[in-house]
Design a protein around this nucleic acid. Structure first.
Lengths: 238, 238
DNA sequence: TGTATGTATATGTATATACATTATTGGTCG
DNA sequence: CGACCAATAATGTATATACATATACATACA
């Protein structure tokens, strides 16, 4: 069957070593020659594997010295809105949430289109209002592919946010954000306790794990109460 | 001197071609063999250059077909609003802009606070409306530290956007975005040709170069006409 | 006419080899 | 003892070559 190319195997070997803490951040991994011998491949093949990982920021190399595991630093832009519970608590405020809806359903046409799945596919849907000091700050309307996350409905989302749970279950490989400004529908007005003229930021977020779409979430914030902040520090070169 | 390695030269050649629009998004670039011949190097050297660019998401390859320029939105989070002129043109639409204000002034209290400078510091202020097919899509209200960018007022911003100019003059090291939803003031309503009930996304952006704050810009988009899109791909492959 | 097959093209992976560059280390000589 | 130099170790770049794989296109055959 699909025998992965050898340089991929070597990448996996190194990544495993990092994950298992065999190779620790800042620590040295074997030299190209050692790995070449271990795997019985040419040095160039090992070089390819390591080059890839360097470009992915997993490793750092110093000529004459060796190859070292990067000090991880997560780097995720828009991480600020990743865990709203944490963020609220960091402000020293009280976090709580109200679960409005949590059940299995079949993908409607619009949901199916957004998620790129056939209409009628089983999905889990959760609607949650997040509160800061008992004041609503975010409405989370989420759809999750049922087959990808079987245990979703059994979670206690007052303890851990859906996002937290999903991140733990399926390591996220890619995130898309589409930000728009909207006026709240009647239902949203009620849930967020705002009036019809309060502009809202709506963040539509799709997350992929291992290149499969896992979840589509629409996060609505009253514009007057909540601001998105992201700082990007550019790494590179010229 | 520092003769760059040849594969770097080839990377630059391709990147230039993309920047100059010689190679367009979706378009094909020369094959490995052609480039190898042009540069009088082995195919493997070209391969290395192209592999790098593929990993940087600049190119896509299909075996048997060729190598193509990605149409992917330049990765950099919120890059979408980096060069609005380019973005509009890439949609195949007509870009134009109207310069509402362009002059030197002294930092007011609120501006000074935003920028962390003493009140009264000389700053340049520009107010520009960006149009797509003659329809206003963004109002740019910008303050620039005068001493850092002396030539600012002399620029012809109908040719190059302020952001473009600033990026060229002082390489940007860090960007902060704060996104909020607002309802437009009367003046904004007029400039963007929208009514009082159109919610707007307002992006407040501060940019640093070499750890010195260079510019503060407030970008207002009608929420119904303009959406911010950002895709974040977390490296880790596996 | 439609299908199968082959061929040219282009990328994907792997190897052996060579030499350059950078940092460490140890040793020699003044 | 210290300064310089050589050897060594490790990565960085470049090449020629080989074979594998995927696609498109043309050609031959039923």
């Amino acid at each position: 069957m699909s025998n992965k190319p050898r340089y991929q195997q070597i990448k996996s070997f190194i990544l495993d070593g990092i994950k298992q803490q065999t190779y620790r951040p800042g620590g040295k991994i074997p030299t190209e020659n050692e790995l070449a011998q271990q795997f019985a491949v040419s040095r160039m093949t090992v070089n390819k594997a390591i080059r890839d990982l360097v470009q992915d920021n997993m490793l750092v190399r110093y000529p004459g010295l060796g190859t070292f595991v990067s000090d991880a630093k997560a780097e995720s832009p828009l991480a600020d809105i990743k865990n709203i519970a944490e963020e609220v608590r960091q402000r020293g405020h009280d976090y709580s949430c109200r679960i409005v809806k949590l059940r299995e359903t079949a993908a409607s046409e619009s949901v199916a289109m957004q998620m790129g799945i056939p209409i009628g596919t089983p999905v889990y849907r959760s609607v949650i209002v997040h509160l800061e000091n008992a004041l609503p700050i975010q409405l989370e309307n989420r759809y999750v592919i049922a087959s990808s996350v079987p245990g979703y409905l059994e979670q206690d989302f007052t303890q851990h946010t859906p996002n937290e749970y999903l991140s733990r279950m399926c390591p996220i490989s890619s995130i898309e954000h589409i930000v728009e400004a909207v006026l709240p529908s009647e239902q949203v007005q009620e849930l967020l306790d705002i009036d019809a003229n309060t502009p809202c930021i709506q963040v539509n977020r799709r997350t992929w794990s291992d290149n499969r779409l896992i979840s589509f979430a629409s996060l609505t914030h009253p514009g007057t109460r909540y601001k998105l902040r992201s700082i990007t520090t550019l790494s590179s070169s010229h």
